[in-house]
């Protein structure tokens, strides 16, 4: 399972960076979206995988049993998803606006503010 997840994370990261390096503005947005998904998967894997375990403390215990799943990575991922949702909404609006004011979606044409 770890191996499968590791390969998946690597693939999603690679796809995200490939899209980020393309010239199209829309591909840039897709790259950013994929990148946040890759990080979420990484958080999920880094938090430790326990197949079939539940993140509950038993009724007569005060701490989580060693075999229980850790609920915190899920909370982190949920927060990260909420944030990336807001960021993605903003990025879409920004790209739309950039397209309107510059009339191009080619990143190579957006160089007039770069330092020489």
């Amino acid at each position: 399972m770890e191996l499968l997840l590791a390969v998946t994370i690597g693939t999603v990261y690679a796809a995200a960076f490939y899209l980020l390096l393309r010239r199209g503005l829309v591909k840039l947005v897709l790259g950013i979206a994929l990148l946040s998904q890759a990080v979420n998967l990484l958080l999920f894997a880094a938090g430790g995988l326990r197949e079939g375990a539940v993140p509950f403390i038993a009724a007569d215990e005060t701490t989580l049993a060693a075999t229980g799943a850790d609920p915190l990575p899920q909370a982190l991922i949920l927060t990260a998803i909420v944030i990336s949702f807001g960021v993605l909404a903003f990025t879409l609006a920004m790209v739309h606006r950039a397209d309107q004011s510059t009339g191009t979606d080619d990143l190579d044409d957006l160089k007039s503010t770069d330092a020489p």
Binding site: S36, G47, V95
Partner: peptide, 29 residues
């Protein structure tokens, strides 16, 4: 000019954020 600047600013900072988050995850793990 603002939009041209913003595209670069936003992209680079989002990449930085995703690295930050990944590092947090590894540290937690």
């Amino acid at each position: 000019p603002q939009m041209e600047g913003a595209v670069k600013y936003v992209t680079l900072n989002l990449i930085s954020s995703s690295l930050f988050l990944a590092a947090c995850g590894i540290l937690y793990g």
